[in-house]
């Protein structure tokens, strides 16, 4: 069983919501990202989503754009992020790592070469933001060949009919984007999320993570009541970018630990 499935199986058995932080590889530096990843795991992260910097991050809001620009300014690209995962694996053989990024850096490396290198670096899943399932059949097959999970987004605007198209290709978990708009935007309507999640679960058997708009303990708890996983990106980047880089790992870990405690408190009450 791969690390993602194993993680969700284990969490489900103990009634715990998965906590999935997102950081951009190379923000503020590759070395600091490595420290942040370990610190996030220590603070209770169950899966780490690692962003691959791209010059034109169309689906991201200003916070993650800034993270991408800081990484690019140091020349960090896909091959550096793969090396970062390999470095992470030296101390952590258990925590799943999911790469999240855009199609062009992968196509520039060559999809087959990428899949092979990602597998050997210790990557577990790949989410390519601008590969909707209609354009991703070949790529998803290639990932599966290398035991990598193709992760897909589901949006509030995704019609019920498309959910089965997504279900056919998705592995690991699906990522429900709880807001219309870009990463880091606006406020969250929990009742609306609950309705959509119920609909998604009718078509997709995989665990469902929810992200976009989760900023604090209260919103994380509200989402955890319905979702298998809570994904948090922009808010962690803000911790990283506010203050000296050498203390970024402590800030990010400290902040995430608060969310972990809040999630566990809810689960205990619910159990």
């Amino acid at each position: 069983m791969n690390r993602i499935d194993a993680t969700f199986t284990r969490l489900r058995a103990v009634g715990r919501t998965a906590l999935i932080p997102y950081v951009t590889g190379g923000d503020p530096t590759l070395a600091v990202t490595l420290a942040i990843m370990h610190q996030l795991v220590e603070a209770g992260a169950d899966v780490v989503e690692l962003g691959v910097p791209f010059s034109d991050p169309m689906a991201d809001g200003p916070v993650i754009q800034r993270a991408s620009e800081r990484a690019l300014a140091q020349g960090v690209g896909l091959k550096d992020v793969l090396q970062l995962v390999a470095d992470f694996r030296r101390r952590d053989a258990l925590t799943p790592v999911v790469l999240m990024g855009y199609a062009n850096p992968i196509e520039a490396m060559g999809a087959a070469v990428f899949a092979e290198r990602a597998r050997s670096a210790g990557v577990d899943g790949v989410l390519v933001v601008d590969y909707p399932p209609e354009e991703a059949a070949e790529f998803a097959a290639l990932l599966e060949l290398h035991q990598l999970a193709p992760i897909f987004l589901v949006a509030p605007t995704t019609p019920a009919a498309r959910l089965s198209t997504i279900a056919a290709l998705a592995r690991g978990y699906v990522y429900y984007v709880s807001l219309k708009g870009v990463t880091g935007a606006g406020h969250l309507d929990t009742a609306d999320v609950a309705r959509h999640l119920a609909e998604i679960r009718r078509s997709i058997a995989l665990p469902v993570g929810v992200g976009f708009g989760i900023r604090d303990a209260a919103s994380a708890q509200a989402i955890a009541a319905h979702a298998d996983a809570v994904v948090i990106g922009s808010r962690i980047i803000q911790e990283i970018e506010t203050g000296p880089p050498d203390a970024a790992a402590e800030r990010a870990g400290g902040w995430l630990a608060g969310i972990r405690a809040a999630l566990d408190a809810v689960r205990k009450e619910a159990a």
């Binding site: 601008d130 909707p132 354009e135």
Partner: peptide, 20 residues
Amino acid sequence: SRGHFGPYGGVFVAETLVHA
């Protein structure tokens, strides 16, 4: 029907835009 000119074109956008 999906916007392909041979290997080019297509719909390479985030899920949030597919429906629109």
